[in-house]
Design a protein around this nucleic acid. Structure first.
Lengths: 215, 215
DNA sequence: TAGATTGTTAATCGATTAACAATC
DNA sequence: TAGATTGTTAATCGATTAACAATC
């Protein structure tokens, strides 16, 4: 029996690099869609993602012939295809921690909503904030964590809290079964191997951009 | 004459991947330093950065023997070394645009300060905000842009504004000579090839993390 | 038809990994 | 000495790129 190694159509796990790049394409495609574009070429995608255009065509053609020669890719259908490939077509619920400036900015933004994430609960330890409303969300107190995670089927925890509060919150999230944590605090989190932590790193990203500007 | 291709000691430009990873190491090292650690092993760095520990030792040993066998790397001296390699030992000044929740969060945070960046000016178009103080910064009006960029030697512009305002702000920044832009808005920016735009992508990062959780 | 852009190949280069001697 | 961890090698795998025929 011959196995087609060149295609991932029937395989299960994508190489890390491919999954990372597909996520980036999705981000740009979503933004382009919002700006009214209906079609995009691999060259335009390359300009916005800083990924080589041949690489983009190669990544996509591994899953099917999504483009139209001489025209480019239809944005809506490409978004659908990539979501299918990444198994992220569904809706995923987020619990957000910290109702300060950053938490409020996240709660009011639709970066997450555009990609199928929904902030279903906002927590804060400040008694003055608990019970108030921020956007469409009521601020919960921490003891309600377990109930909310279960009732709302929360799969992601986003930490927009001071560094001093981050580790204990992560521990509590893990204890109630959350396995994906997005950490905006400056703390380094220690977690079990089966938990995925993603840290925000604007300063590191900026250093990287600056390196090429300075040299 | 024999050129040592294995080392970058005398070369000028690092491969993209190396520069990106060194920036990540710097981020984690800075956080670890803040948490009181003085030494770190390549394995610990690997756990926090999701980069293979052999890869980390390889990256670093290309520039010198920074570690101590049986012990690990001294955090302070490694930070100094990497900053030298990246040519980012100095101080770099940022102009921040948007005094909303996100702008305020950035202005009050020290993620940037920890890496040698200093927010030297904050701009907003809301007349009610111009002239008020946020943290140590006074909110400027946009017409002051050119003067501030020149007087404060601004090299980076950070956009924490609505998508509708982003492109025109980027154009103005480019016109006054800024070549590195960090875009927190959801707009796709069109810029000349010599301008580096870095976009924040929390949702894409989350999709990527989620892919491995779901499969 | 002419222009544009995809899909694909082939060749090169950098990333990844396991393994292990060196040494703190 | 024993344990830990670096620095380095060698082998493999994935990423990158130029080039171009296919085709919209």
């Amino acid at each position: 029996m011959i196995v087609d190694d060149e295609s991932f159509e029937h395989g299960e796990k994508l190489p890390l690099g491919v999954a990372a790049r597909l996520s980036r394409y999705l981000q740009v495609l979503t933004q382009a869609h919002k700006m009214g574009k209906t079609t995009i070429s691999s060259q335009e995608l390359a300009d916005y993602t800083h990924v080589n255009s041949t690489q983009i065509r190669r990544d996509l053609s591994g899953f099917g012939k999504f483009g139209k020669r001489g025209v480019g890719y239809n944005i809506n259908s490409l978004v659908d295809q990539i979501r299918k490939i990444l198994h992220t077509s569904g809706q995923h619920n987020i619990a957000l921690f910290g109702a300060g400036h950053l938490g409020t900015a996240i709660a009011s933004s639709d970066v997450f909503a555009d990609h199928g994430f929904r902030v279903v609960a906002l927590f804060d330890i400040d008694p003055a904030k608990v019970g108030t409303r921020i956007g469409k969300l009521t601020v919960h107190d921490l003891p309600e964590l377990l109930d909310v995670v279960r009732a709302e089927n929360v799969v992601v925890g986003v930490l927009a809290v001071p560094a001093s509060a981050a580790q204990s919150l992560a521990d509590r999230l893990i204890a109630v079964g959350v396995r994906v944590i997005f950490n905006y605090s400056e703390a380094l989190l220690d977690v079990p191997p089966d938990v995925a932590v993603h840290a925000s790193s604007p300063a590191a990203d900026l250093l990287y951009a600056l390196y090429f500007y300075l040299t």
